[in-house]
Simulated assay, not measured.
Amino acid sequence: MLRSVADYGADILQNLANSTLYEQLSAWFEEQTRKRNFPDLGPGRTVQSIEAQSTGYLMTAAPDVGRYQIQCRMIYYEKGTRR
């Protein structure tokens, strides 16, 4: 889960920009998966994909601030020991 707090209120353009950020993040995850450009999780772990599992959405709103979130997933392989 990735969460953020941003300005929120009657300014429709600001609210749209907040939503656009999460759309861009989702596209960035897809691009990184396509390019196989993943974070290093250390020895024995190999990332397979990263993705957004939901669209970014407004979770709660106060008069001048909104809390947004998006659910994300990273799939990785972890080398184990055989018995």
Results as ranks from 00 to 15, higher is better:
Lys35Leu: 14
Pro63Leu: 06
Arg83Trp: 07
Val5Cys: 10
Gln53Ala: 05
Glu30Pro: 00
Asp64Ile: 10
Tyr76Val: 05
Phe29Tyr: 06
Gly80Glu: 09
Val5Trp: 13
Leu25Ala: 04
Ala17Trp: 09
Gln48Leu: 14
Leu13Gly: 07
Ala10Trp: 06
Leu25Met: 09
Glu30Leu: 02
Arg82Ser: 07
Glu51Tyr: 02
Tyr77Arg: 04
Gln71Ala: 11
Gln32Ala: 05
Ser19Arg: 11
Pro43Trp: 11
Ala6Met: 09
Ile12Phe: 01
Pro43Met: 11
Leu2Asp: 11
Arg83Val: 10
Gln14Thr: 15
Asp7Ser: 14
Gly80Cys: 06
Thr46Tyr: 09
Met1Ile: 14
Met74Gly: 00
Glu31His: 03
Met74Ala: 08
Thr81Ala: 05
Met1Val: 13
Met59Val: 14
Leu41Lys: 07
Gly42Ala: 10
Ala52Gly: 03
Val65Asn: 04
Lys35Asn: 12
Arg36Ser: 08
Leu13Trp: 04
Tyr77Gly: 02
Tyr57Lys: 12
Val65His: 00
Thr46Gly: 00
Trp28Phe: 02
Gly42Arg: 12
Thr60Arg: 10
Glu23Phe: 01
Asp64Leu: 08
Thr46Arg: 11
Trp28Gln: 03
Ser26Pro: 03
Ala6Val: 15
Tyr68Pro: 00
Thr60Tyr: 08
Gly56Asn: 14
Tyr8Phe: 15
Gly9Met: 09
Ala62Lys: 05
Met59Gln: 12
Gly9Arg: 10
Asn18Thr: 13
Ala17Tyr: 10
Thr60Met: 09
Asn37Leu: 11
Leu2Met: 13
Tyr57Ser: 15
Asp40Asn: 14
Asn37Gln: 08
Asn15Ala: 06
Glu51Gln: 09
Gln69Asn: 10
Val47Glu: 03
Asp7Leu: 14
Tyr8Val: 07
Thr55Lys: 15
Gly66Tyr: 12
Tyr22Val: 03
Ala62Trp: 04
Asn18Glu: 08
Ala6Cys: 14
Ala10Phe: 07
Ile70Ser: 01
Gly9Lys: 10
